[in-house]
Amino acid sequence: MSEGIAFYAIFFAAIFTNNILLTNYLGMCSFLAVSREVSTSEGLGGAVIFVMTATSVLNWLAYHYILVPFDLVYLRYIVFIVIIAAFVQLVEMVIERISDKLYASLGIFLPLITVNCAILGVSLFMVIRNYTFFNSVFYGLGSGIGWTVAIIAMAGIRQKMARSRVPKGLTGAGITLIIAGIMALAFMGFSGMIKIT
């Protein structure tokens, strides 16, 4: 286990210097589809933070207490994706029963999340990097926040841009990707902020 790596370093690196969306391109599909409006982005972002943190906890437990002891590590993809899908389904059902308001704001985004590569990506990175439980929680939380920051910023820019003139071939996906590229450049400027000892 990597005791030498501090949880706060992982947390901030996941948000800024190594944003899972802007450096690993994970979660691009929903990013491109949903980032048209700030309010929907906030909703989806909230759901992603919650699911990402919770599933990294669940998957960490499943990996270290079930898969490793029984030498089933090679089945981790199936186990992770099933845990994520089941968890999302469960949360959707619970929210639907408890609060209509919450369901309206968060619930509609949940089905989108199972297929969000970033969720599975966080779980896979976490076991490949051999994180401790505590580090995994903060890695999941940080990645979720990082993803949300990126999508909200993008939605803000795209809302402004609705009134500007974009070269014809670039409208839609093209210009979004260019903005994402510039954002990735900007986020790279954060490197140096975190000192890992």
Partner: peptide, 10 residues
């Protein structure tokens, strides 16, 4: 690095 891929795809 990451931005290169975004620009190329665009």
């Amino acid at each position: 690095m990451a931005p290169g891929a975004f620009f190329m795809l665009a």
